[in-house]
Simulated scan of single mutants.
Amino acid sequence: MLTLVEKGKSFWRDEEGLGTLEMIMIIAVLIAVVLLFKDKIQEVVENLIDIAGEKSRKVFD
């Protein structure tokens, strides 16, 4: 029974693969943020494209 407890503690302290888990968590949070604010992000990008288009028209006119 003691070896089972020791193996459990060893498994808990093992940090191998922790980087992968952190990356998966970061990606999941980013996807959630994008899904929550999709409409606002789309609006901001469209406004930036419109502003860039207007400024480029001024340069070429």
Score class of each variant (00 low, 15 high):
Met1Gly: 14
Met1Arg: 06
Met1Tyr: 08
Leu2Val: 08
Leu2Ile: 08
Leu2Pro: 00
Thr3Arg: 15
Thr3Phe: 11
Leu4Lys: 13
Val5Ala: 13
Val5His: 08
Val5Asp: 08
Glu6Leu: 12
Glu6Tyr: 05
Lys7Phe: 02
Lys7Pro: 00
Lys7His: 06
Lys7Gln: 10
Lys7Ala: 11
Lys7Tyr: 01
Gly8Tyr: 01
Gly8Ser: 04
Gly8Asn: 07
Ser10Glu: 15
Ser10Arg: 15
Phe11Met: 14
Phe11Glu: 09
Phe11Asp: 10
Trp12Cys: 08
Trp12Lys: 13
Trp12Phe: 14
Arg13Lys: 14
Arg13Met: 13
Glu15Arg: 15
Glu16Asp: 02
Gly17Trp: 00
Gly17Ser: 01
Gly17Glu: 02
Leu18Arg: 14
Gly19Met: 09
Gly19Ser: 09
Gly19Ala: 08
Thr20Arg: 13
Thr20Leu: 12
Thr20Lys: 12
Glu22Gly: 10
Glu22Trp: 08
Met23Gln: 12
Met23Trp: 03
Ile24Pro: 00
Ile24Met: 11
Ile24Ser: 09
Ile24His: 06
Met25Arg: 15
Met25Pro: 03
Ile26Phe: 12
Ile27Glu: 15
Val29Asp: 12
Val29Tyr: 10
Val29Trp: 09
Val29Gln: 14
Leu30Phe: 10
Leu30Arg: 06
Leu30Thr: 11
Ile31Cys: 14
Ile31Phe: 12
Ile31Gly: 09
Ile31Gln: 09
Ala32Gly: 08
Ala32Leu: 10
Val33Asp: 07
Val33Arg: 02
Val33Gln: 06
Val34Glu: 05
Val34Ser: 04
Val34Thr: 05
Leu35Arg: 15
Leu36Thr: 12
Phe37His: 01
Phe37Trp: 04
Phe37Thr: 03
Lys38Ala: 11
Lys38Asn: 11
Lys38Cys: 02
Asp39Gln: 09
Asp39Pro: 00
Asp39Gly: 02
Asp39His: 03
Lys40Ile: 08
Ile41Met: 02
Ile41Val: 00
Ile41Gln: 01
Ile41Ser: 00
Gln42Glu: 07
Gln42Pro: 00
Gln42Trp: 03
Gln42Lys: 09
Glu43Cys: 00
Glu43Asn: 07
Glu43Ala: 12
Glu43Tyr: 03
Val44Ser: 01
Val44Gly: 01
Val44Pro: 00
Glu46Phe: 03
Glu46Gln: 07
Glu46Asn: 10
Glu46Thr: 11
Asn47Trp: 04
Asn47Val: 04
Asn47Glu: 11
Asn47His: 04
Leu48Asp: 02
Leu48Met: 13
Leu48Glu: 05
Ile49Arg: 09
Ile49Met: 09
Asp50Ser: 05
Asp50Tyr: 10
Ala52Trp: 03
Ala52Lys: 03
Gly53Val: 02
Gly53Cys: 01
Gly53Ile: 07
Glu54Gly: 06
Ser56His: 05
Lys58Val: 01
Phe60Trp: 03
Asp61Tyr: 14
